[in-house]
Structures are given as C-alpha cells and as structure tokens.
Computed example of a mutant assay.
Amino acid sequence: MGSTQKNVLAALTAALLWAFAFVAPAAVRPASELLLVTGRYSLFGLCGLYVLWRGRRQLGLMPTRRILFGLYIGFVGYFVFYVCVSYSATMDSGFITAVVVGSSPITIAVAGNFAEKRMSWRELIAPVVLIIVGLTLLSVSDLIQGDDLEGANDSLFAILLALGAMLTWSYFVVRNAQSQRTWETKPDPTLWAGLVAMGAGGASMVLLPFAIASTPAETFEPYPLFKIIAWCVFLGVIASWWGTYIWVKAAQGIPVPLVGPLLATETIFGAILSLPVERRLPTWSEVTGALFVLAGIGVYMFFDVKNSRTRNGGNGGSGGHGGDDDERSSDASGVPVVT
C-alpha cells in the first residue's frame, strides 16, 4: 500500500509539472506564444537528441518508416498541440483551454472504439452529451456574461484552437497506441520518447529564428528575457522530460483503474493554476461548464473501469488479461505523455 501511495503521489507530481504548460503563455508576456513553443521544444528536442545519440546502435536497427513515424507524431502531438494551446490560452483563458483539452479522454475513447471496441456505444452517449453541454457553456461564457461581441468572437476562436489541441492530442494518443500494438517488435520506450522529442524539437529549432525575429523588442529587456528563458527551461527540461520520467516510473506501480483519473488531474491543475495568473475568479458559466466536462469524464471512467474488470474476469488486473490492460493503459497514455 505504501508503494502504491508513493507512485500515486509521484504521478500527481508529474501531472502538476505538465499543468504549468497552460499557465506559461500568459506568464511570459510580452514574449510571443511562438517563442515559448519553439524555445520549450528546442530544449526538449536536445534532451531527445542526447537519448538518441546514446542509443544510436539500437536506433540503427529500427526500420526507417518507424523512425519517421516517431518524428511525425512528435511534431503533430507535441509541437502543433502546444501551438494551439498557447494561442488559445492567451486569446481567452488558460482556465477554459485546460478544461477543453481535459475532455480529450472522450475523443480518444470514441476514436479508439472504432479501431478496438472497448465499450458499448450506448455507454458513450452520456459522457459525450455531458461534455458537449460543458463545452457549449464554456464557448458562450462571454455572451452569457454580457461582454461585447468582439470579446465573444475572440473567445469562440480560442475555443476552436483548444478543440484543435484536444483533437491533435487525441490523434497522437490513438495513432501511437495503434501503431505500437501492431508492431511485432516494440521499440525501447526511452528511445521512442527520444524520437518523439526530436519530432517536436526539430520543427522548433527550424522556427526558433523566426520566433525570435517576430517577438516584441521589449521581450529582450533583462527581466522579460530572464522570464522567457526560465519558463522554456522549466517546461522543456523539468516539466516535459523529467515529468515524463517520473510518470513512466510511477505508472509501473499504479493500478490500471487509477491511470485515467491521474492523467486527468493535469488539466484540473492547469485550470486552477491559470486563475491566479489571470488575476480573476472563474465565472459561473465557466464553473458550470467545467463541472459538466468533469462529470462526462467521470461517467466515462466509471464505464471504462467496469468494462476492464469484466474483461479481467474479476482478477483485478493480475491475470493474463491484466497484462494486456497494463499495456493498453501505457499505450493509451502515449508512453511519452508530456503536454
């Protein structure tokens, strides 16, 4: 029991580290969102490059198509994802962005259900409806509060960007899980994480000069410059790389039913942390929308846990099928589960 509690605490620590990704875009102003993204993932990519260099012999044995695929999903699932998150958070609210992205377990479940029937479609109706209601409340929060039309339009565009981030992350998780499940020889998790990091880092390194050139001049004054560098180091090395290491180690000792809820805490932390940075309290429509989204995720996880126990024949995941579920949960969180 003590070991499980320590692993849960470690997983929560990783989720908290990742949650700062929703806070950073507003915290680094006047630096541009693109500078934050490229700075963060350039450092993350260098960590991946170091891992790939150390494992270059194993990398040489990996088929080229798998190497390219790892780089590709790293670019889409990390770089494109965080571009959407950053612009969404600064256009409207890190709180709303975190809540919208937090509904990704449902899109992952729907997409995954097409490829591998895990639960009845009927069981997905209630979670999907709850989340749609919640997202609708979040989308029209400015109109409900009586704000001007321009502010409402910005909020709606920010919601679209957040939905883009949610769909991008869902695509990454599903494709990563599907591909590795169909491969006869699975890549080493550390080496695979290095490839994904390089996929995000490669694009960032290419765009970093443009991001610097398009950043407001006041960003390069001493304090703003120190702030953006500190955030890039924190997000790229501590949150992304070290946070992933903590999660992978902790997940090995966490019961399967707890994996989903622990991953979901990332966006809950992100929503809570965003409010002090934005110096405000959430509106009633934001709170109501967030509660609907959380309720949808909760209902989905209830059915998922119930179905997992049914598949395991009541063995609590300790039998042969339990190994399959452990593998599924690891893949579903995308081995490198950084955001």
Rank of each mutant, 00 (worst) to 15 (best):
L17T: 03
G146S: 09
S214W: 15
F302Y: 14
R181H: 14
I212E: 09
C84M: 15
S155K: 07
T38K: 12
A197C: 14
T219P: 06
L167R: 09
L135S: 09
L258M: 06
A177M: 11
V110D: 07
G74M: 07
R279S: 09
S214E: 15
A177H: 13
L294S: 11
V99C: 08
R181V: 12
V85H: 14
L195G: 08
L52D: 01
S204C: 03
L294H: 12
P187H: 08
N153V: 11
R181G: 13
L71Y: 14
A290F: 01
E286N: 06
V259L: 09
V233S: 03
G323F: 14
T168M: 11
L195W: 08
T38W: 10
R328T: 11
S329L: 00
I212N: 10
T190K: 15
L17K: 01
A14E: 06
G243Q: 07
V28H: 03
A290K: 04
A26G: 00
F234Q: 05
A295T: 10
L235D: 02
I238N: 03
A19E: 02
L163Y: 11
A177S: 13
F234K: 07
R280F: 14
R309T: 01
Q252F: 09
I297A: 04
G134R: 00
N7E: 09
Y245K: 14
L258V: 02
P282M: 08
I272T: 13
G45L: 04
I229D: 01
M1F: 08
A197G: 12
D142K: 15
L160N: 08
G253I: 05
L46A: 03
W18V: 01
I108G: 00
V233E: 03
V37P: 06
Y223M: 15
V337L: 00
S318A: 10
T97M: 09
S170Q: 10
T136Y: 09
Q58F: 12
Q58I: 12
F44L: 06
I67Q: 05
I246Q: 06
Y78N: 06
S329F: 04
T136I: 05
P63H: 02
D325V: 11
E218A: 00
A14F: 06
L195M: 11
L61D: 03
W53H: 03
P276N: 01
R54P: 00
V76C: 14
F95R: 10
Q145K: 13
T97P: 12
Y223R: 15
T310W: 02
G164E: 05
G334E: 05
N307A: 07
L225M: 13
F226N: 08
D148F: 04
D92A: 05
A14Q: 08
S103L: 07
R279M: 10
P255T: 05
K117G: 13
A98V: 06
G70T: 11
N113W: 07
